[in-house]
Design a protein around this nucleic acid. Structure first.
Lengths: 229, 229
DNA sequence: TCAAAAGTGTTGAGCGTACACCCATGC
DNA sequence: GCATGGGTGTACGCTCAACACTTTTGA
């Protein structure tokens, strides 16, 4: 079977930058390529867009196929189309970035044949294609977006302590935050629900758990509220 | 001549939302389609991406071909790839938005056969394809971006009065701004150069002209400065 | 009782906001 | 001299930033 067109067409792929946070470190998910070009190199999970699926569907499908990651925050990042970005020919890729609760569901390493692994963002191996650039753009987007929209919660367990939340912001923003000011600000927004549960198994006073109230957030947004850290 | 591939490929296009401001109104540039589908309807300027050109180059080329618009601020907006967005088959489009100094160079209406015209954003004709959605996303991006980056200047003549600048922001943000506060803020950033020139041909006190200092802006950004209105 | 992190309040400075009047110019 | 927009200063309230100590708990 083959397909013929009057004019040449670039190939169209999707690639995903999947972020997670663990051990006080920002991580991203990579897969090891098993075919040329760049066989043996690490690369972003991704693949060709099928004719019957939307771009975001393609990104989700690839993530499930290659990494077993399901049900995550996913947003289109940017489309990379430099003429020579792929040695096989013209390939345009629509990049997405994703946030996963690394602490909750242990992400399966490899679902299909390939190896998948988490790498500390600050210590990435050499990457295939123009993936270093894509990763960089995604990092910048995350850094900016986390300040204006409550997407940080997508990286934490559903129930979290205020210190965990603060630490998350410190990791993503790469700067220390003042504990009292942070708590005042975040609690003042009235977006968190105080639970009657506490940390367990810590060798000191157990911190209260909170959860993010998505419904309340949406209601506030309608009234002109703007999230900001 | 024809091109054959092992797997089917979506067609890839670029489309541009070109913004301009005139007569206290936000406008966008549209072209009238002369072929099916949507013959006779207005649509965004755009067309197929050639194999040897980057995405942004394709967008610039289409703009020159269809509208004669050259040398403008151009930035990638979003990639639209819904399966059924084009009745001819699978077509994925990388949308760009552009800002032009409508007051400066009168934009040529039509360079190739098609009719091009400016429409008030609030009074657009029915558009082809999913272009209403693209226009909406572009409007939202403009509204947000204009507050955090000094792109508003791209819509004004190189030399402008503070009132013209304020009016521009009022149009884009769709809300009135306080004259004194606006002036204090914008002048306090030290991004504008006070010229020894003044408005001409007005029936009242002539306002001083200013220009935006791009170099100074870049220098400030390096030192951590953040533009904000 | 010690270690470790949880939790909490106040003050000062700077910024955003609201607001009203005089000035320069062309007709 | 009048109409039109240009141009300016001040006071208040709020938010942000800086900062230190007490409390709770488990080991």
């Amino acid at each position: 079977m083959s397909y013929t067109y009057e004019y040449p067409r670039p190939a169209l792929t999707v690639d995903c930058v999947v972020f997670g946070v663990a051990e006080r470190t920002l991580k991203i998910l990579l897969i090891e390529r098993d075919v040329e070009p760049f066989a043996g190199r690490w690369a972003l999970p991704g693949g060709f867009v099928h004719m019957g699926e939307d771009l975001e569907s393609a990104a989700r499908r690839e993530l499930v196929e290659e990494t077993g990651v399901d049900k995550l925050y996913l947003e289109q990042l940017y489309t990379f189309g430099d003429v020579d970005r792929d040695p096989r020919g013209r390939v345009v890729t629509v990049a997405y970035y994703a946030l996963v609760r690394l602490a909750d569901h242990r992400v399966q390493a490899a679902t299909d044949a390939r190896d998948a692994a988490w790498f500390a963002f600050d210590d990435l191996p050499p990457l295939a294609f123009d993936h270093p650039r894509i990763v960089e753009v995604a990092r910048e987007r995350l850094r900016n977006k986390v300040r204006y929209e409550p997407i940080g919660f997508e990286l934490l367990p559903k129930k979290f302590t205020l210190t965990e939340l603060q630490t998350l912001y410190e990791i993503v923003l790469e700067r220390p935050l003042d504990k009292r000011n942070f708590r005042k600000k975040i609690l003042g927004m009235e977006l968190l629900v105080e639970l009657d549960e506490f940390e367990e198994g810590v060798a000191h006073r157990a911190a209260r758990l909170y959860r993010f109230d998505e419904r309340r957030y949406r209601r506030l947004v309608k009234r002109g509220f703007n999230f900001e850290i």
